[in-house]
Design a protein around this nucleic acid. Sequence first.
DNA 1: GAGCGCGGATTCCTATAGGATTTGTGCATG
DNA 2: CATGCACAAATCCTATAGGAATCCGCGCTC
Lengths: 232, 232
Amino acid sequence: MSDPSPAVARAGFPVSRQVLADHVYEALLEWLMDGRLEPGAAVSIDGMARELDVSPTPVREALARLEHTGMVRRVALKGYRVAPVFTREDFAELMEARLSIEPVNARLACSRMTPEGLDALKQAVEDLKTAPRGGTFAEYRSYLEADERFHQLIAAQANNQFLLAAYNTLGGQIQRFRLFGGVGITDAEQAIAEHQAVLDAMTSGDPGKAAEMMVDHVEKVRGRAMADAPEE
Amino acid sequence: MSDPSPAVARAGFPVSRQVLADHVYEALLEWLMDGRLEPGAAVSIDGMARELDVSPTPVREALARLEHTGMVRRVALKGYRVAPVFTREDFAELMEARLSIEPVNARLACSRMTPEGLDALKQAVEDLKTAPRGGTFAEYRSYLEADERFHQLIAAQANNQFLLAAYNTLGGQIQRFRLFGGVGITDAEQAIAEHQAVLDAMTSGDPGKAAEMMVDHVEKVRGRAMADAPEE
DNA sequence: GAGCGCGGATTCCTATAGGATTTGTGCATG
DNA sequence: CATGCACAAATCCTATAGGAATCCGCGCTC
């Protein structure tokens, strides 16, 4: 225990209501999303416990939750591993799933959009445009974050807990692919334009158009990624 | 430890490769699906450990996995509870999500169907027709099981790991609703006919028709449930 | 009678210990 | 050289202990 204030924020305000397992979960998730843990790497329970200076118990609990997201995989008595790199087929399946869910989200989000939601979407697209796109991860990290946020916001605005949960499961995988898909950010201009097209449809309140633009976007993402990384 | 052979099947064959947490997970899932744990009921970690005669550690791990399925909910420092009863709005959202995902699954499953898969589907519909539909849960349990199996098989035949995962998350909720939706099995004849229609489209190899019939089925399920339980 | 404070019991949470299993290494053998 | 085996280290898995938080019933006060 190095942290002297486990659950108490300033002035005795227990606003946190978080236990160690929650912190471990978030730390691991961040490491996975950041690429600090590479695909296929072993995630030792005891090792992580030492690393984070906690006991193995909360680490075990956090990993059990993570397993269900597909970010890590478990083999009984052998431990956890970061999910392996996407194959070409995995990627195709992921895009197929996105094409099934995201246009529906876009359609619903458009018809149920709140002014605050629309503002947040505009902000996300704005962040995409202004984000640095350098070669190192630290540079284009904010770009990836804004990309993910755009799609996440649409899923949230669809106002359906089950569709949101379904998207979130995909979202983690999408983010993972963005990191380890091999290519950096080579299609920013086109991707931004496609995001803008979705946003425009949302702004004009045309659900059908929003769905159509989302289909267009995902299909083009698929096309570009398939062209960029043709090797198996 | 009452079980003398934890992971060793006959003749020293460790085929099981299951640890205690896996068994606890399955036991809890079965209890949830069976309705033995009612919505809103507290699921005490220590209590479950006593009940199953294991230590709290594997129970904690199993519950952490279950939380992500939406079957139980956790509040830090307060414990787990079975997810509350579906409200009318929850149900509407669930059906909206099904309408987004299941027709896609049906379409893909139809175009990728294997002979074995088709046989399994036929068996499921056959089981639906012959299952007893008495008033007690023990009686119509096999009916619910066959219903769930039919949809699950289609999701599996769609041959897309992400869509399957998305459906499985829904599937648990659907099953939970079937149990606690208030009404018993009052629509068996119509539901069976709708399932048969989907199966027929699959057999004839018409993906568009399969998707259409699935839309029809889910919409009618929604209609009947909304009519049966109009009270909020 | 209603509201409030205060133990006691219950439960959650984390750490630790030790048994069981897997993994890696070195050495002997064919 | 390849193969198999023994042994050691690392890791997973489960049980247990004890601190911390929550819940519950009781008595007190207003």
